[in-house]
Design a protein around this nucleic acid. Sequence first.
DNA 1: GCTTGCCTTTGAGTGCGCTCACACCTCTAC
DNA 2: GTAGAGGTGTGAGCGCACTCAAAGGCAAGC
Lengths: 154, 154
Amino acid sequence: MEPDDALREALRLAVDPPGGVSIEALRELARDDDSTEWDIATTAAHLGVNPHTLRYYERIGLVCVPRDGAGHRRYDAAAVRRLVFLTRMRTSGMPISDLRHYIDLVDADRDTVSERMDMMLEHRDTLRSQIAQLQLALAATEYKIATYQKAPRP
Amino acid sequence: MEPDDALREALRLAVDPPGGVSIEALRELARDDDSTEWDIATTAAHLGVNPHTLRYYERIGLVCVPRDGAGHRRYDAAAVRRLVFLTRMRTSGMPISDLRHYIDLVDADRDTVSERMDMMLEHRDTLRSQIAQLQLALAATEYKIATYQKAPRP
DNA sequence: GCTTGCCTTTGAGTGCGCTCACACCTCTAC
DNA sequence: GTAGAGGTGTGAGCGCACTCAAAGGCAAGC
């Protein structure tokens, strides 16, 4: 299966109705536009996070961001790619400590592929049961809604 | 539509793949076994939460629990039903403050059906986009896994 | 009677993930 | 030149949702 097919397949599984994020966000993971050079405000806006958060992530060593002459951050493609990944993992509930560990593996000079793979496999399990939990909560919510619709004026 | 049909319909909307929790948990929402009389440890175990958390929920007025002669909590069917709902809403990310509001509506003596309905409708939207987000994260995770599988020894 | 264990209340503590305040710097526009 | 918008690093603060500690009550078993 080609990477692009994998992407499409993944997206097919995802659907995403309201919310705004779409295939664009996914593409970000795969693209390699080396001309990207964003300042912190632009980057934060694109990622939907607070600039403070970006500085915080850098402070704790999750990402390394080059500077311009004035010492201001210039987010290049590599930094943005990593941040897209990081924010996606964060919004899906992976704790910062795990991300630190993962990033340490990525940045290690030895071969850590299998360790990273294990982390991703575990996170996949977590995600799956999380989705199941949410779908259960959704069912409960739908049930309440149905109940309320049946008895509009009790 | 009979309650049981509503349940099934809700479940149909939910799918829930792996994860363990199933229609059992949903049934809990609808059943009315008035012989339920659990102590705090049993209740906590059934709900998968810390007994401290149950006391906390009661302290902040989310639920009202009768006592036995010794002053110990005896969770009856009504309390358990409410707690099942509450924990489901909590695990799906509804903040405590919203739950307080919702419970205030439930316990109000005026007709608050439409207000509660609005809250549930809004939460449904939240849940849907949350699920979409998670599916996106799952896609990203699958993508990483696929990448690692393709290059086991780089 | 005394220990053990589970319960009670209340106030205080914890951990996480930001988020802010502060003091300072560096451009651009007027 | 000076105001203003935006940036910098660092330490401290915050909000949430628990989670624990302390001091005590009750009931069963030895």
